[in-house]
Every structure is written in C-alpha cells, then in structure tokens.
Write a protein that binds this DNA or RNA. Sequence first.
RNA 1: GCGGCCAUAGCUCAGUUGGUUAGAGCACUAGAUUGUGAUUCUAGGGGUCGCGGGUUCGAAUCCCGUUGGCCGCCCCA
Length: 437
Amino acid sequence: MAQFQSLPGFREFYPEAFARRSHIFRGWRRAAHAYGFSEYDAPVLEPLDLYKRKSGDEIEAQLFAFTDKGGREVALRPEMTPTVCRLVGAKANALKRPVKWCSIGEFYRYERAQKGRERAFFQFNCDIFGEPGPEAEIELIGLLIQSIAGFGLGPEDFYVRLSDRTLWIHYLASLGLDAEQTKSILGAVDKYEKSGDGAFADYTKTHGELQGDVKAKVLSFLGIKSLAALEAVLSPLGGEALTARLADWRKLLAGLSAMGLAEFVEVDFGVVRGLAYYTGFVFEAFDRKGELRAIAGGGRYDDLVAKLGGPDFPAVGFAIGDVTMGLLLEQRGLMPAFGPTADVYMVIGGEAERAAAFADIRALRAGGYRVEYPLKDLAFGKQFKAAAESGAKLALIYGGDELARGMVKIRDLTDRSEHEVPREKVAEAVRDCFAGA
RNA sequence: GCGGCCAUAGCUCAGUUGGUUAGAGCACUAGAUUGUGAUUCUAGGGGUCGCGGGUUCGAAUCCCGUUGGCCGCCCCA
C-alpha cells in the first residue's frame, strides 16, 4: 500500500484517464477554434484580494488560500473570470473587438468533494468582451452548445436553460421590493428547485413573511418557460427599458433558432445563478435526464471588468467543467476506447536483424508512422501476438531469410495477407498499404 | 463545517460462532513455443487485511479512535 496518497478531491490521471481528459479538451478546442476564439492562460496562483474583490470576504473559506514566504496573501485560482477580466482590462483599449477568448485550466476549491464535484477540476472558459447586445449571447451560447454537442450529444441528451437577471430585477421592483429584498429573493429562486418552499426561509428571517400575492407572483414568474408567457406578464407593465429588453429576448431566441439550435434552448426563469455579479442573461446547461450536476453555467457580467480596476467593458461568458462533462460522455458511451495504438509493428528475427530494422524504424517514425517493436528478442509467436495487441495494421518482418535476400516481408494484420518488398522500398510500400486502406 | 454507508492483491470480490502459513477470478511476468496472432496448460511476483489503540490464549473478523472513499446537507464562482 502506498505510503502517500493524493490529497482529497485531487485527481491523478493514469494514461487511460488522461486519454479521456484529452478527448474532452480536444472537443472543446475544436469548437472554440471553429467559433474563432483565441486561447490564453494565466497564473494558477493569484492574489487573494482578486477573489475577495469580486465575491466578498466570505469566499476565503472556499479557497486554497495561504500566505507565501514573502508575506503575500495568495490563493489557488477557483475560477478564471476575475483573471480574464484583469487581462482584458489591462489592455482593453488595444484589443480589437469583439474580444473572443477561451482557456482550459485547472481550478481549486476547498469544498467537500461529491459526485461531479472535486477539489481540483478543469474548466473550459469562454468569454466575449466588448459587445453589449444579445448578438454576443447568440455567438457565445452557440459555442456553448457546440462545445457539448461536438462530442456526439444531441438535444435529447442536454439542453440550455435560459433566464435573465435584468428582467427578474425589473419584475421584483415592480412588485415593490427594494434592492436588499430583491437580492434575497433571487437567492431563494436559485434554491427553489431543490428546496421548494424552504428556499424562502432566509428571506423570511431577514425581511419577514412575503405578502401572499407577492409570493404567488414570484412563484408564477419563476415558472415561466416561454417567451410568450414572459411577454404576457411583462408587457402590461410598460416602460421603455422593459420594451427594449423584450426586444433583446426576441433577437436572442430568433438568432439561436436561425442557427438551428432551438431544440437545445429552453426559456426557464427558475434559473438565476447564485452569484450576484451577473447583470443580464444567465444560462445553465443540464443533462436531459436531470441526473447530474450542471454541465455548464454562464451569463453576462457587464460591471466586473470595471469593478476589478479596468474600464467599462461589457462581457458575457460561460464555463464547462470536465467532471460532469466526462460523466455524461461515459454514461452515453461516447468516450473513445483506450489502448496502445501503433500503425506498424516490427517483427525482428534476432540481434543481427535488429540493426537493419532500427534504420527503417527511425525512418518510418520520422515519416509520422507510429512504429512499435520488441525491446528485447522474443520468439516470433510472441511478436505476432504483441503486434496484434498493438493495434497495428501492418507487421514488417525483419527475418534472417528475408534480409539475406534483401527483402522485408509485410503482413497485413487485418486480412493476414503477406507479400515481400525490397528493403529500400519499405517506406514506399508502407505508404501504399495505408493509402489503400 | 455536519450526517449516513463503506475500507481484504493493480481490479472485482470470498473469507464460517474470533482459531494454524489470508484465498479466487481477471490483470501482470515467465515457460511450454528458435519463423506467424487474441486459445490452452504450467509456474511466478504481488497483501503490515487503510492506519493506530483496545478486548482476547488467539483479531481480517469484536470495540474505540483516526484517515480515506462514496452518498446527502451547507455551498456551488
């Protein structure tokens, strides 16, 4: 038994697990590439204040935070958003807009691990800066969907729930609630799906019982699942801002629909996102069966760049976690099989033939083929077995008989056919075999 | 931070009312096999039974503690 174990919630990636992780990363990068996003990265260790500024002092309890040898208060990054806001804010005036950036990195949160949540995890972060209108949301949500659908998942597997903190705040104000009450109600809405009526306990404790009709209206608003229902509730209230906001909604939904993504998107005002810094549209992606944690979450945060010391710079972004994403792909059988993979396996007669094989092994590898061979002399039977297990299409046989005649025998492991070629034509023959496949 | 369940080989698990040197399958290594494929047969390596303490003539087994895991609560950027 190993004397040392990894820390709780931290993951080790043996080759098979690493292959799964790479598969996920590749899928994300493929999507981001297609959508024209540029990849960046930044420090894993940041000043603690960066997170306190954004989320308040309480956040420290959820962080891997400590004082470094220079007396600096630091924290392992729990998320990318504050960092990317700093990066963008520092060069805001020099960046061509819209700024479309993405990154894949590991994040750390000092929390109890449970299904779909670890203390160390990877996130794919995508953000668009510099575009205040819903055109940015169309592009970003399009990318979010592609980043999940690209693995072979369809609208029957996952969907994006779309909501709007701006409209929630408008609506609660119209019910006569002040800013503090609004904040508290949004907290309750966030919990409502899980906790039911108990979600309002915190509100009741600080602000007293909600009036019966106000509560009924909140619950009814929370249940809105379509643009038509939204308009029916809000249109009577009138007002320029509200009218403009509803126009944004129509634009967003029409855009996503025109992209052919309507089946992936559902209006759902039960979503508000826990964090208060979101300022407009918010959204979360879930598996359709509702068995897993959220796959992804995001929204607009127009005030954050300025709050962290930059200029006013509108922004909208999302993050997908690797843990839930991986669980979903495994559940649906969409993780690729893992195994050693070679294109060519060299069967070597003995020490004398090894030197000849080495020259061709190097040449084939330089040509991009994946070539394996036994490191030590093995009986032919073992070598053919190893060749089969390596997944190679071809076995090149460097035997004493063949080499004496200046030939190499090529065995196609898929159909067990064999033919001989002159040694100097091996590279060419291999190329032909793969070209014909 | 709080609660429930769990911990035996790399993996999946047996292990009798507490009783001699803790087992099986899979996986791994080697041989049968000195020129042709996933079979078969044989052998081998691998365990402080999570860790520490207690009860007992004797503990993988019973008790306490602890660490870790899974699940839930809080939280979820």
